[in-house]
Design a protein around this nucleic acid. Sequence first.
DNA 1: CCATCTTTGTGCACGCGTTCACAAAGACAT
DNA 2: ATGTCTTTGTGAACGCGTGCACAAAGATGG
Lengths: 255, 255
Amino acid sequence: MATGRTHRPATRSRGIPEATVARLPLYLRALTALSERSVPTVSSEELAAAAGVNSAKLRKDFSYLGSYGTRGVGYDVEYLVYQISRELGLTQDWPVVIVGIGNLGAALANYGGFASRGFRVAALIDADPGLTGKPVAGIPVQHTDELEKIIKDNGVSIGVIATPAGAAQQVCDRLVAAGVTSILNFAPTVLSVPEGVDVRKVDLSIELQILAFHEQRKSGEETPAGDGAVPAAVTPRDDSADQGPDGDVPAVMPA
Amino acid sequence: MATGRTHRPATRSRGIPEATVARLPLYLRALTALSERSVPTVSSEELAAAAGVNSAKLRKDFSYLGSYGTRGVGYDVEYLVYQISRELGLTQDWPVVIVGIGNLGAALANYGGFASRGFRVAALIDADPGLTGKPVAGIPVQHTDELEKIIKDNGVSIGVIATPAGAAQQVCDRLVAAGVTSILNFAPTVLSVPEGVDVRKVDLSIELQILAFHEQRKSGEETPAGDGAVPAAVTPRDDSADQGPDGDVPAVMPA
DNA sequence: CCATCTTTGTGCACGCGTTCACAAAGACAT
DNA sequence: ATGTCTTTGTGAACGCGTGCACAAAGATGG
Ligand SMILES: NC(=O)c1ccc[n+]([C@@H]2O[C@H](COP(=O)([O-])OP(=O)(O)OC[C@H]3O[C@@H](n4cnc5c(N)ncnc54)[C@H](O)[C@@H]3O)[C@@H](O)[C@H]2O)c1
Ligand SMILES: NC(=O)c1ccc[n+]([C@@H]2O[C@H](COP(=O)([O-])OP(=O)(O)OC[C@H]3O[C@@H](n4cnc5c(N)ncnc54)[C@H](O)[C@@H]3O)[C@@H](O)[C@H]2O)c1
């Protein structure tokens, strides 16, 4: 750090980079596993390997947290677990509602990984009257009419949308109006929300298309070329410039 | 442009930025919707709004594709749909296998969005003998023993893993050994794969934790402060530096 | 108490991605 | 034809994220 007096910069304005935030859960998972094996300390090198990241990156990430390791030794596992949990807000309980209890919604409701980290399924909501009252994963499904009341009574601030795409924006609007400020969207739609509301999306179809893109590259881009039916193009372009495979696929990308 | 002769740089070494690739499916979805409404052309501004991105970004993205719009008019919808589909490799058929037909795997198998874009569920695979032969979404589940044969017979290069975390790496290894080079992983584990194999992960738990982080920020970071039980810290740090809410939540981030 | 060895914390440089802002391209009207 | 108006395509500046490389911190052993 060159000047020995520059010590405040860490933990500075509490500005943790978004990329770092996205990796904290990864570290937490690896640390939890170590904790369960009663490993007392871990080096940045080991932990980075377990989390699948570069060790310098990991150290820099932790430096934002202001978390201290011990030089020559490594990081105290329990301490880090606590610090990261605290930073992520996992020391408190987060009630969550799932809207749209179809194939996916039911799977999510049954998912055990929810409760394991402070997330509690407060309610399951669906518009289908036939589902109302039916228990899914031990929780009775409630009707959409109750949505606002459920949100308010339980102080829910995180909502999961698993309805068909057509209903997603409407459901989103109601959730937001009722007080939800974080949404996890599984429907393939772009949701528009007011300032201050976070939306994250999980889109299977997009993931597959990205994989297909790279897959196509790998297989030498052997476009049949003779594929007919190009719709009337405004400006015809020559797409004959097929390069050979260059093999430099960037691979994995953090979600 | 500037120099009227600098015309080759677009479509250059076929180096489409990863960030652009990740947005192409988004554009494609918006364009498909327009196409269904028989809209002939669309401006970058309109399309960008529909896809939820900045219009300059969209134009730059398309410039990598080498796709031409018409100045003063916009882009030809049908032409763009075709070009993007082609670039993403969606003009060909991609057989996909799903391994682990539990709650999530079954939901995925039932998901209609698969077939809509060139992805075909070639097989469902599970280790549970009790499931073998049972139809899920009209497709009989096959036993894990058949995995290698299935992959090879169907020329599968994309695999989806929806097994418990403990089995994921092992399943992954078998898939890769059998010839799969792209994997979509739903299990909460870091998969290690050889060079040349792409892995993308979908991790519900991580998404929720990221939301929780921002949620905590919004609610003024009112840590109870009196929360006991801090595990023995190697280097005790003062975490009394709780700032008030600074309100600068970075908000939404594209997945 | 000093020497050595390990591992952290970070300064620095680099590359990618985003966004602004504008000149050029073309459509369209006169 | 010529002018006007719209919209693209992109140069350029900037900011964020990544990874190298190393000095400083501290543990450990003699
Ligand atoms: N199943 C998957 O694996 C999968 C994968 C990726 C994305 N998706 C997306 O997730 C969403 C759900 O998929 P699914 O397979 O579970 O669909 P589904 O049809 O099985 O379930 C949808 C559920 O939403 C309910 N619903 C409809 N409108 C509603 C409303 N306005 N309010 C509340 N509930 C409402 C329906 O009653 C139904 O129970 C879809 O948008 C789908 O595209 C699903
Ligand atoms: N359900 C969800 O909403 C959800 C959400 C996020 C992540 N996940 C993750 O997805 C995975 C599956 O979740 P789930 O709820 O469907 O679990 P599940 O227990 O319902 O299903 C797992 C299935 O995998 C099969 N299996 C086990 N070992 C196997 C092997 N070696 N080869 C092939 N099949 C094997 C089991 O027989 C079972 O059918 C888990 O890793 C879970 O953490 C699930």
